[in-house]
Structure formats: C-alpha cells, structure tokens
Amino acid sequence: MELAMRSVWRASELAVSHARTMSTGHPVLDSELPNGGWPRSALVELLVQQHGIGEMQLLKPVLASLSAKQTIALIQPPYLPHVMTCRSWCINDRNLLWIRPQSSADALWAAEQALKFGICGAVILWQTNVRPEALRRLNLAAQTTDTWLWLVRPMAAAADASPSPLRIALRPQAGGISADIIKRKGPHCENPIFIPLVDMPVGHHLLDKDHETPARRVHTAVAAGSTTPALV
C-alpha cells in the first residue's frame, strides 16, 4: 500500500516519470520543471513577446551539448543563423541544419519528417499561426521519437489551447529574461522566474538579420509530402 501511494502523482507536486530530460543549464528553471529539465519526446512551446529577447540563449546549454554529435534542425527561423555566435557558444555549426520552407505547411511537414525519421537530436520550429490539429500531429510525432522539440510562437498564442505538456512565456528583463511557466505537469507556477543571461554581449544573437552561417541549408519541396528536401 505504501509503495502504491509513493507512485501516485499529486497535483500539488511536480510530476516525476521515467521520461528522459536534459538540464536546461539554468538551475532556477530546472527546479521548476518536472524531472528537472527539458523533456525529450515532447512538444515544448516557447511563447515570446518578440524574437531575439534571449530565447536562443535560453537553449544555448542544451544546443551546445547536443550539437557536439547530433544534428540540430532550425526550421523557418525569423533571422539567419550567425556562425560566429555559434562558435562562441560552443555550438557545432557543422551540425546545424537550416531549413527554409516556402510555407507554414511545408515547415510543419519538415518538422514531422525530422521527428518521424529520427535524423536530428533536436528540432526548433518557428511558427506564427498553428492550427490545433497541426499541434496534435506535432505532439504525437514527438512522442514517437528520441528528439527534443521546441516550438517558438508569439505570446498571443498563450490564450490558445495546446496539447503541449510544457509551455513557457518569455519576456525580456534587464540582465536576462522572465519565464512564466503557464503549463506543466504539476501545480500552477504562481510567479515568473528570472533567468540571468548576463554572459551574452549586447546585440550578440544566434539568429541575426544580417549574417548567415555556413550551416547546411535545406529548401523544402513546394508541396508537403513530395520528394525529400534537397540540400543546396
């Protein structure tokens, strides 16, 4: 009876499971996440007030770790990947796969294919408007793979329902970012968390409007579901 009670998850406690996680590299955030890190095989949503507020630096520790041996897919990012920032962040730019779809439908298809075939250690997808059925497909695809998946969306999407088990709203704050965990497996997080990002020089971002990395570029096929994307 005692063993059974210990295995019961209570809504007042952070969920603990056998699912694999990786530390975010930010102890204050790890302490608020189930199993103490980013969940693998799950759709994680980052809801941003605007692009370039530090969301990529938030992911820097895990991207540096994964890119050492695995491919990181950047699908439809708002700006160009910046090679010098990659190197200064110890991210292996040779393992970055920059995918430039021609439409949102192609971007979602590319993300599903990357998850389905397990070709990447992590996938980061940027989208503005995502239909509920597309979110469900992404979530289901994530559950069948050993890949980490982040979906970056506008802050306005926080009001929409989502199957994602982890949703975090990010806002800029002096010296770092404010992270408001709006959904997690556990009790509601009452207050936003301040995450210091003090080691990033002003204006030094992984994604840049004016600079392009020699990361591998992929243009997805015009019609989702057609031939495999070609490297260019």
Rank of each mutant, 00 (worst) to 15 (best):
M1G: 15
E2P: 03
A4P: 00
A4T: 08
M5F: 04
M5I: 05
R6I: 05
S7K: 14
S7N: 12
S7L: 15
S7H: 12
W9D: 08
W9L: 10
W9Q: 15
W9I: 07
R10T: 09
A11D: 07
S12C: 06
E13D: 15
E13R: 08
E13F: 05
L14G: 02
L14P: 00
L14Y: 12
L14D: 08
A15G: 04
V16P: 00
V16M: 10
V16L: 11
S17L: 01
A19P: 00
A19L: 14
A19S: 15
A19T: 11
R20C: 06
R20L: 14
T21M: 08
M22A: 12
S23N: 02
S23E: 08
T24I: 02
G25L: 06
G25S: 06
H26I: 04
H26E: 07
P27M: 06
P27T: 03
V28R: 12
D30W: 11
L33E: 09
L33C: 09
P34N: 01
P34F: 06
P34A: 03
N35Y: 03
G37T: 08
G37E: 03
G37L: 09
W38D: 05
P39T: 08
P39L: 12
P39K: 09
P39I: 11
R40K: 15
R40C: 15
R40E: 14
S41Y: 12
S41N: 13
S41A: 15
A42R: 06
L43T: 10
V44I: 14
V44M: 13
E45Y: 12
E45R: 10
E45S: 13
L47S: 12
Q49L: 10
Q50N: 07
Q50Y: 07
H51S: 14
H51V: 02
H51L: 04
G52C: 07
E55K: 05
E55N: 03
E55A: 11
E55D: 03
M56G: 03
Q57A: 10
Q57L: 01
Q57I: 00
L59T: 01
L59Y: 02
L59H: 02
K60F: 03
P61G: 04
V62H: 01
V62L: 12
L63T: 06
A64F: 03
L66D: 00
L66A: 03
L66W: 00
K69E: 15
Q70C: 05
Q70E: 15
Q70M: 09
T71A: 09
T71F: 02
T71Q: 12
I72T: 02
L74I: 11
I75M: 12
I75T: 09
I75P: 01
